[in-house]
């Protein structure tokens, strides 16, 4: 998670819906197609979702890719909490699940999947976590929302939607698996 996705700042402006549930499923379909196109059929590819909401996104992408091409691609979860650079400042957090497919990541193309790309620090942590697991042949990044404000030289290979935001705004991704509904909301900001 690039930010606490369900943490709404106390503000006066109502939350605005950026993506509806049908938008989200179209976006996931498109990213699945782009992955197939860019990787020529997604052979030797592993999808690793970053908890919390990257995990259901990775599994949905794997499901769509299987539906389009009949290719089963392994998917799992990669928790990055123990690799974060803000543990000393923000304190310990509960760990998320880590579940790496049995064949591992060595020599494979790993596509990291997250809900929101923001500062890039989560992806930095994920890259370090990934390289302790093994040596992928290539690493790519897929995100549902890119909201800008990068603090590190990191970019996504697949982006669901670019949302220009102010730093004071809040992007909340809701997914059925965790929140009971599919939508992306933008809230907060200077009134």
């Amino acid at each position: 998670m690039a930010e606490p996705a369900h943490d709404q700042a106390g503000d006066t402006r109502p939350a605005r819906q950026i993506l509806s549930d049908s938008d989200i499923s179209r976006v996931i379909d498109r990213i699945a197609h782009q992955i197939l196109e860019k990787t020529r059929g997604a052979a030797e590819t592993v999808l690793l979702g970053i908890p919390t909401r990257g995990v259901p996104l990775a599994s949905r992408l794997a499901e769509r890719i299987a539906a389009f091409e009949g290719a089963t691609i392994p998917h799992g979860a990669l928790d990055v909490t123990l690799y974060r650079d803000d543990l000393r400042i923000r304190g310990a957090r509960a760990l998320g699940p880590t579940d790496v497919p049995a064949d591992g990541v060595d020599g494979r193309r790993v596509i990291l999947v997250d809900d929101v790309l923001y500062s890039g620090r989560t992806v930095r942590a994920a890259l370090n976590a990934l390289y302790d697991l093994g040596r992928p042949s290539q690493v790519q990044l897929a995100v549902l929302v890119d909201r800008g404000h990068r603090q590190l030289p990191i970019r996504a290979d697949y982006v669901g939607k670019n949302i220009p935001t102010a730093a004071s705004e809040n992007v909340s991704v809701h997914l059925k698996e965790h929140d009971g509904t599919d939508e992306v909301l933008l809230s907060g900001g200077a009134a």
Partner: peptide, 11 residues
């Protein structure tokens, strides 16, 4: 979580 993080690792 530590157990999950330590499973199947090279490092």
């Amino acid at each position: 979580g530590m157990a999950a993080a330590m499973t199947g690792r090279e490092v």
